[in-house]
Amino acid sequence: MSEPVEEIEIQLLLDALYRHYHYDFRHYARASIKRRLLQAQKQLGFDSISALQSAVLHDETMLPNLLNYLTVQVSEMFRDPSYFRALREKVIPHLRTYPSLKVWVAGCSHGEELYSLAILFREEGLAEKTIFYATDINPAALKAAKAGVYSLDRVRLFTENYQQSGGQCSLSEYYTADYGRAVFDQSLRARTVFSDHSLVTDAAFGEMHLISCRNVLIYFDRELQDRVVGLFAESLARRGFLGIGSKESLRFSAQADRFSEFVREERIYRRKSR
């Protein structure tokens, strides 16, 4: 049987996005990409994936729209509280020993993970000596991350998570409520560099002490996961830490032997010195 037309169209659209805009989704986990492309086609009102492809090639104002489908922006502050508790209790004591720190939040979405870490580092007295790098490929997400504004009904969940993560104050000390929105304190991101960086097509960052990249690897196929885990190994200082999502693991990765498990249940790894 010949390949289904839809699969051909999807491959062509991904090739076109790469060749024209340099956005490379070709090695994303295909089943999920297909779902989201079909959703985009339907909701944006196209008869076929080819029609969607034509529109996005000829009209670059379509691109942000499509990116919002191709990237998944679901996040929470202090998502999986036990991860942040493990950082606080097990990783921070090691980080404390360095004179200055670099932390990379890769795939930062709307900033939920970044602000969680910024709050954690402030409470542990490390904020002043830390530079955060927050990166994503979706410009709209980066813009939202800089703003740090979330609807108050989400903040209820964030607060619950924060408390379970071992938070020392009340989350409300870090934001002001305003017309149904929580505006997070801008001083939290005073030492953050936001940048448009793709884990797929861009180079390594230097000498990070902690990389937190949660729920991004699951969107990649195995080959791309290997590349990105290799990029993390290159971007980490010796004995630097890598935290990934609670249902992600390095177990199936060809790069696994460059890391040792540090907190196994929380998927926190440490780069081997050699």
Partner: peptide
């Protein structure tokens, strides 16, 4: 797993998603 979608990839492997 709770709170994740589960998908099957063409090559016969599982994939998770937080969509």
């Amino acid at each position: 797993p709770p709170d994740y979608h589960l998908l099957v990839e063409a090559e016969g492997a599982l994939a998770l998603s937080t969509e």
